[in-house]
């Protein structure tokens, strides 16, 4: 649905024309109907990528396609929706005037437009704010009307830049539910965030961007599965196991005759299993402890 090939963006800053490489050879593919999380710390190049995809920036190198068409093609935008980061709209318009104006830009026929606008006001929970000027909207309300404008044309691809920033916990949950609902309707959702809990809950796949470079991409389980922090083995100790394993393990917790042993790698797991067998103990469970997304993120940044 969205494909990029070697996207690179170099900004020239200041009077001396210093070059800043905001994005470096990004190659990525987002499949139809998935929720794709675009992760990275501030300044990683997420917004730059999104602005290239929406035609606000021209890439220095590389190409990108949305729904099979190259991004310069305006017709792509007929079936695409976009919410920028910290959006801001014409504050002198009322909510209704605003959506009506954008509906005209999308050439939605009058009757259909009014119907759709009504639907969207209730979908994003802004009923009753139709006649209010946008300058009177709170930040959360602006975010909601921003989502409404992105969905006006019932798009196949929705691109959201930090859709949950500035929202309270309830607002975040509503946006999460909305994104899931969009996926259920068969839409492709591409959104950026630096808030990991958003991604852990709803994304099918994620890409991690650090300092303009793509560090990893794939389903969250796989990404995190690749990094096993430790292996926890629970055994029943008839006596003697504790003394033998305590030097092998990173940590051993004893509760009556149960031992919870944290081990570093698979080799030590083998040795612990041997000891348990010799002592006629019993193994209850072996559980690899994965990194949380947060820990993964930090690790990536350290490596980067």
């Amino acid at each position: 649905m969205i494909r990029t090939e070697g996207l690179t963006k170099v900004f020239t800053v200041g009077f001396r024309g210093r070059k800043v490489r905001a994005l470096e050879g990004l190659t990525l593919e987002v499949k139809r109907g998935e929720i794709f999380g675009f992760l990275g710390p501030n300044g990683a190049g997420k917004t730059t990528t999104i602005k290239i995809l929406t035609g606000l920036l021209y890439p220095t190198e590389g190409r990108a396609w949305i729904m099979g068409r190259e991004i310069g093609d305006v017709s792509v935008k007929e079936r695409m929706g976009f919410l920028p980061e910290n959006p801001s709209f014409y504050e002198y318009l009322t909510g209704l005037e605003f959506l009506n104006f954008y509906g005209q830009l999308l050439k939605i026929p009058y009757d259909e437009r009014l119907h759709r606008i009504g639907e969207l006001f209730s979908l994003v929970g802004l009923e009753g704010a139709e006649e209010l000027q946008l300058r009177r909207y709170s930040k959360g309300m602006i975010q909601r009307i921003g989502i409404a404008q992105a969905l006006l044309n019932n798009p196949e691809v929705v691109i959201l830049d930090e859709p949950m920033s500035g929202l309270d916990p309830l607002g975040r949950k509503e946006i999460r539910d909305l994104i899931l609902r969009l996926r259920d309707e068969g839409k492709t959702v591409f959104f950026s965030t630096h808030i990991l809990s958003d991604v852990e809950m709803i994304c099918d796949r994620v890409a991690i961007l650090v300092k303009g470079r793509l560090k990893a991409v794939g389903p969250l389980d796989e990404l995190l599965g690749g990094y096993v922090k430790s292996i926890e083995v629970t055994v029943r100790d008839p006596g003697g196991v504790f003394e033998e394993v305590k030097d092998l393990a990173e940590r051993v917790i004893r509760r009556e005759d149960l031992l919870l042993i944290s081990l570093k790698d698979e080799e030590t797991v083998e040795r612990v299993i041997e000891v348990v067998r010799e002592r006629k103990g019993r193994i209850h469970s072996i559980v690899p402890q994965r990194l949380s997304l947060e820990e993964y993120f930090v690790k990536m940044q350290e490596e980067g």
Partner: peptide
Amino acid sequence: DRRTIYTILSKPIK
């Protein structure tokens, strides 16, 4: 300046 152009240009308009 007010970033209203971001969403305008994301609509099918040249």
